[in-house]
Design a protein around this nucleic acid. Structure first.
Lengths: 270, 270
DNA sequence: AACGTTTGTCCAGTATATCAGACAAAAAAT
DNA sequence: ATTTTTTGTCTGATATACTGGACAAACGTT
């Protein structure tokens, strides 16, 4: 699902940009800083990071210098900016390598994108939002990642109707913020309709939506189930909204087959 | 370059497994824990992580719980084990997406692997060691990542003779630990010969080595230069040692062309 | 069933890390 | 050239985080 200009919120320990008289733990500052860089998606100078996360400059300089020493951040350019470093690439690669289901999901996503010539994605929950973990465009087998990492309200997405499938109606009401039911175009989704969708889609094992996050795409999602039956990731196809209906049926069939194949696997981790 | 059973060392703030009476900063514990998990390359329980990094159990439980809340770690399985979480996948993806040269290097690596049918890799320095950042096997275009993230002594590698090209002889002597000149098979490389190699390979713009880390592979490396002329990454091919010499020449030519193409690019970051 | 070991959380003490603000140097503005 | 603003580091105070060890529950062994 391709997200447009989305306002995101994560489980930060402190509100970004809000000056806080209270002292924060260094670990919380580190997490805020990394989350802030993820949101920014561009290198930044330590002073700018201090402002971004509302931390004292001396604290921020100390943390940045420590993370640079550990190569979680690298300096880039010649003007003091920092960005995610090689250690982050390696931690991410380690995540992908050891998680067998994830590794297979990425392979399936790549194959689906090549076969269908539309965008294929692997998606999951992050905090109380939906996020694309990885993405492939059918047109060219290099990574198109404009959506990867961008947190999107769950009700805007096909995957969201599968990722909450293990929750009770009450739990869903508590989990999804009220404001997330308002679509980018201003329409307000009915929460109870959404909950009904979650139940229906979970039962049928797939979901198809049109024109939620934007008016131009049709999204197909199928659950990747763990051995405990929970859907922690989904496999998705994102097609132009005017794709022929017979193509829809083909996309959905291929997607469900690929996701089912993944769900039959051994546990995600050895 | 494919590494065998390699003993690794990183810039840890405290020696792993060494109980330390001195109090550590929480941030240092976090970094030790992430480095330890990267080395372990498997999920682990918090108690085991405490032993691995020599931290008090109460401190480790607190840090693990905080990192799980932020999804830098995820619980896996049903027995309390944790491993790198979705946030790490996203930080790593953000690293790869925004670093233009890196993204192009991965595309070039993938193309080279398909074309040559041998393993292609993108490599860099990490601390005072060499590391594979990403890898593709020619035989199947899915990620073979047994070497990704494993730190290897620099003198064992073709890339190492390019990655140190910006250093003086004196700086190299200070940078590479003496023990790293001993190969896995017991042979001791001459440090001054190594330094001469660095100068020669840097000048000629490529390096080819055989039977350093192991006896079965021939490694070709070419520098990916930043706009400041420094070689911060290399592009490599790893071929069986008995590959025909005319194949060698073809591999090297293709490799150098691809790396040169990358080095002509705009700066790594906007 | 009884006993021993390990786990995960809790608690109080104290060493120290976080912070506001100072400061000099560098950069930007006039 | 001068003045103003920003940067990056430094310092001392004190609130607190890290720790060892205690504890109950869970698990493993006999």
């Amino acid at each position: 699902m391709q997200a447009l200009s989305v306002k995101v919120a994560t489980n930060l320990s402190s509100d970004l940009k809000a000056a806080t008289p209270d002292r924060q733990k260094g670990i919380d500052r580190v997490i805020d800083l990394l989350e802030g860089l993820l949101r920014l998606r561009a290198p930044a100078k330590p002073g700018d990071l201090a402002r971004l996360i509302g931390a004292p400059r001396s604290t921020t300089y100390e943390i940045v210098n420590r993370l640079v020493t550990a190569e979680l951040l690298d300096y880039v350019g010649n003007d003091g900016r920092v960005y995610f470093g090689r250690s982050m690439q390696l931690f991410g690669a380690a995540f992908a390598d050891v998680n067998t289901v994830y590794r297979r999901a990425v392979a399936a996503m790549t194959a689906l994108a090549a076969e269908t010539q539309v965008t294929a994605q692997v998606c999951a929950l992050r905090g109380s939002k939906y996020v694309v973990l990885d993405s492939r465009s059918g047109a060219a087998l290099h990574r198109i990642t404009s959506d990867v990492g961008v947190e999107v309200p769950i009700p805007w997405t096909a995957s969201g109707r599968l990722l909450l499938g293990h929750m009770t109606a009450e739990a869903i009401r508590a989990f999804v913020p009220d404001e997330d039911f308002r679509l980018p175009d201003g329409r307000l989704l009915n929460r109870e309709d959404f909950i009904a969708d979650v139940m229906t889609c979970t039962a049928q094992g797939w979901c198809e939506t049109t024109g939620l996050a934007d008016h131009f795409t049709r999204c197909f999602a199928a659950p990747i189930r763990d051995t405990d039956g929970l859907c922690r990731m989904t496999l998705c196809l994102v097609a132009p909204v005017d794709t022929a209906p017979d193509q829809h049926a083909i996309f959905l069939a291929r997607l469900r087959a690929a996701a089912a194949q993944l769900s039959l696997q051994e546990p995600s981790f050895p």
